[in-house]
Amino acid sequence: MGLGSFAEKLKQLIQGSRGISEDFFEHLEDYLVEGDLGAQESVSVVEKLRIRCKKEGLSEAGEVRQLLARILVEELDPLYKNQGPLLNPQERGVFLILGVNGVGKTTSCAKLAARYQKEGRKVILAAADTFRAGAIDQLKIHGERLHLRVVAHQSGGDPAAVVYDALEAAHAQQAELVIADTAGRMHTKTALVEELKKIDRVIASRAGDWISRKILVLDATTGRNALSQAEVFHQAVHLDGVILSKYDSTARGGVVFPLGRQLSLPILFLGEGERYEDLRPFQLERFVGEFVGLA
């Protein structure tokens, strides 16, 4: 969003305000809506801010930023304070990476693989997006670069069969993690839901006590559309969390708040660039600081 980011608008609002007025709160509410918090969430946050400003005796607009940050952290803190790791040290698991086309699923698979590989895990990639030959080829390239095995079938094959073979390979090679890239067809299509249910049955039959996680990749620049995608996927297959791709401190990251408040979906990682190491674990206070312009 560049100069149109919420942090920049808040800075300009503070600089242009002599004090905390009703006009100030109205502009702040508008900017929060534009920052993708949504109307209901924005009204709630501003009302809490209004009450707290009066209670704490704040009169200068410049004092508001820190308080706003505290309120936004409090909004999501219950969701994150007890958030454990995706995979504990002694656990083995299967990660299904979901999302519509173009959000960065395949790249996110590779970044996750690189991260767990660096931790000493043996990882296998599964090219279960069989509907797009380019996705299979792309994952194979990542596998070569990372020196990881990629289990793949021909384009148009059965995604569940790919996951099955990947699990068989994991058992044979004593791997600890399978990361599966899944098809990115439009999230409204029921065929995709049925496909994922079939993959679920394969995992249940072959993974034994392995942990299964469903992770949705959302593009940080798409704003409220990302929330719509998350709602459909979450209702269909019950997600475990989100990777917010294409993120930087000026991206439209406000959707993090309705994802947490409305869907109880935590952000697991922020994808910040093209390199494998550009996958930052989500930290609530740091994110909020960036959102309001404190970081």
Rank of each mutant, 00 (worst) to 15 (best):
D158W: 07
I203A: 09
I211H: 08
A135M: 11
N101R: 05
G289V: 03
E231R: 15
D240C: 07
Q235G: 15
P258Q: 06
A128M: 06
W210K: 06
L28S: 06
K189F: 08
D30K: 03
E74S: 07
Q235C: 05
A160W: 00
L72M: 13
R92D: 13
I243P: 07
A7M: 05
G293Y: 11
V232Q: 14
S5T: 12
G16D: 03
G84Y: 07
D36P: 03
K9D: 07
D36Q: 01
V162S: 03
L112F: 14
G62E: 15
D129T: 03
E41F: 09
R149N: 08
S155C: 04
Q83I: 09
I199Y: 04
S17N: 04
L284D: 01
R252I: 00
L196Y: 11
H153A: 02
A61H: 11
S249A: 13
A207T: 11
V46A: 00
L239Y: 10
V73S: 06
A128Q: 01
T250H: 11
L244G: 04
H187R: 09
R132Q: 07
R206V: 11
R18G: 15
E41T: 12
H142Y: 15
V73D: 07
F269P: 05
P281S: 04
L239T: 08
V103K: 09
S228L: 10
I215W: 15
E195Y: 13
E195S: 03
R65G: 05
D200C: 01
L37F: 14
L13N: 05
D137Y: 09
G157W: 00
V288F: 05
L270E: 04
R201P: 14
M1K: 11
L112C: 04
L244W: 13
L28V: 12
A191S: 11
S264G: 03
V178I: 12
A207G: 13
V193K: 13
D181Q: 01
Q173V: 02
Q262E: 14
N101L: 02
E8H: 11
K197N: 14
S228H: 14
D23Y: 04
R145Y: 09
V163D: 10
A183H: 03
P266H: 06
I71W: 08
K122Q: 12
A7L: 04
H147P: 00
G35N: 00
N88A: 15
A113V: 04
E26S: 00
L72Q: 02
V242L: 10
F95R: 00
L125V: 11
